Simulated assay, not measured.
Amino acid sequence: MRLALMIFLALPLPASAFTARNGMTVEQAGPTEIAVAFASGRADTDYWCAAGDFAQRALNKPVGTRLWRASPKPRGSGSGILFTLDETRQATGAGLSQFGAGPRDGAISVGQAVAGHCRVVVPLWDD
């Protein structure tokens, strides 16, 4: 099953896919799975932003909903990342490092993914 998901993440997504606020392409890959397509030059936190934005705006999940990484680390060259809203489907050891209070389960909330990892892109020139 993981091989099939990895192949899915490597394929281009259809035009009907969701565009996150950071410009990344996202699609629902199952009842609780969120697939963020590969984008060159993006950090892993950009993928968390896109998954959180999709969960919040497309799936109407509350900001407190937990979000886990389902793709194992490390991410292969040219591969996207699969996320899940189901704790039982998380990839062992693939979550974010966490500091401060709160559960240490490798997940972050949808609200934290958006507020903490969605950066504003400022254009370098006027169009």
Score class of each variant (00 low, 15 high):
22 N>V: 02
51 A>N: 06
85 L>I: 09
36 V>R: 00
66 R>Q: 11
32 T>C: 05
127 D>T: 08
23 G>V: 03
111 G>N: 11
23 G>H: 10
43 A>D: 12
83 F>N: 01
81 I>S: 05
81 I>L: 07
88 T>M: 06
119 R>Y: 03
101 A>N: 14
108 I>Y: 01
61 K>E: 12
34 I>K: 01
96 L>T: 04
103 P>F: 09
47 Y>R: 00
119 R>N: 10
32 T>H: 10
19 T>P: 00
74 P>T: 07
98 Q>L: 07
19 T>Q: 14
73 K>R: 15
62 P>Y: 08
25 T>V: 12
84 T>A: 07
40 S>Y: 07
32 T>K: 08
95 G>M: 07
20 A>N: 03
75 R>G: 03
3 L>V: 08
61 K>F: 04
5 L>Q: 15
7 I>K: 15
1 M>V: 11
4 A>S: 10
4 A>P: 02
61 K>C: 05
7 I>A: 14
75 R>H: 05
6 M>Y: 10
47 Y>S: 00
32 T>A: 11
41 G>D: 06
64 G>C: 01
121 V>S: 14
93 G>M: 10
105 D>Q: 09
6 M>R: 15
36 V>G: 00
16 S>Q: 15
112 Q>I: 03
93 G>L: 04
44 D>P: 09
30 G>L: 02
58 A>T: 08
19 T>R: 15
55 A>V: 03
35 A>S: 12
91 A>Q: 13
25 T>F: 01
71 S>L: 06
114 V>K: 05
78 G>Y: 12
71 S>R: 14
43 A>F: 05
5 L>M: 13
65 T>M: 07
52 G>C: 04
32 T>M: 08
111 G>H: 13
100 G>D: 09
68 W>I: 02
39 A>H: 02
119 R>E: 08
17 A>D: 13
62 P>R: 06
59 L>Q: 05
35 A>F: 03
45 T>R: 09
16 S>G: 13
59 L>F: 13
84 T>P: 05
26 V>N: 01
6 M>D: 13
34 I>H: 00
53 D>P: 04
6 M>E: 14
75 R>D: 06
101 A>R: 15
66 R>G: 02
124 L>R: 15
108 I>E: 02
103 P>M: 08
83 F>W: 04
30 G>Q: 01
26 V>E: 00
106 G>V: 04
110 V>R: 00
36 V>W: 01
